[in-house]
């Protein structure tokens, strides 16, 4: 079989398939720039992000600051930006799928809200505010009954969970959460004695 030929044919098919899918979902079909999704037959051994990244430098600055506040360095692992979470967030919200496009809307609006709120309170953008000012805004968002909560909680929760997904799915994140594995073993030993003791099964 001529694999090169298949690849070209497949990729053309994917572009067509995608724009049809997007129009059907009421999404902009990216008429001028061809945007590809992952495709139905990607090379699984090679990570390729075929879509352009959409967040601006200013947005990315806020993403980095916010991500590191949400997931700071501690004794179990580094901060979010040390394992590429900001780039992952950009990769995620730029993807040409309905869920991710929905997240883009929430995250864009949320990032803009943070700047507006920070300007209003501290006369500077969120990323440039002092650490205690940055957390003051987040603390208002997580407090019941505040305007900040009304306006930005959806964003807060979404951003936190996407950042956590991006963080804990890296080897450094495994260590931080306590995942041990993905390594070949000759025998499966079952849970070790300290686990059995913890569970009252010893």
């Amino acid at each position: 079989m001529n694999n090169d030929q298949i690849t070209r044919r497949e990729s053309l098919k994917r572009v067509i398939g995608l724009s049809i899918a997007l129009s059907a979902a009421g999404m902009p079909a990216f008429a001028n720039t061809p945007v590809r999704g992952i495709g139905t037959d990607p090379n699984l051994l090679k990570k390729e992000i075929p879509w352009p990244l959409v967040l601006t430098d200013a947005e990315m600055k806020t993403v980095k600051v916010l991500g590191d506040i949400m997931i700071p360095a501690d004794e179990n692992g580094p901060e979010a930006s040390a394992v590429g979470v900001p780039d992952f967030i950009n990769e995620w919200v730029s993807a040409p799928y309905e869920q991710q496009q929905g997240d883009l809307k929430v995250i864009r609006q949320g990032l803009a809200w943070l700047d507006t709120e920070s300007q209003k309170r501290f006369s500077r953008k969120y990323a440039d505010a002092a650490p205690e000012q940055q957390t003051a805004i987040l603390d208002d968002i997580v407090k019941q009954g505040t305007d900040a909560r009304k306006q930005a909680y959806t964003f807060f929760k979404l951003f936190r969970d996407r950042a956590a997904g991006g963080y804990y799915s890296t080897p450094a994140g495994w260590k931080a959460i306590g995942y041990v594995g993905n390594t070949p073993m000759a025998e499966f030993p079952g849970p070790p004695p300290e686990v059995l003791k913890h569970l009252g099964l010893a």
Partner: peptide, 24 residues
């Protein structure tokens, strides 16, 4: 204890920072 995927989260939707990492 599976290899973590995007679904990692904690029940309390109102925490962040070190507390969030501890809960995770």
């Amino acid at each position: 204890r599976h290899m973590p995927e995007m679904g990692v989260s904690v029940k309390d939707g109102n925490i962040y920072g070190k507390k969030f990492k501890d809960e995770a």
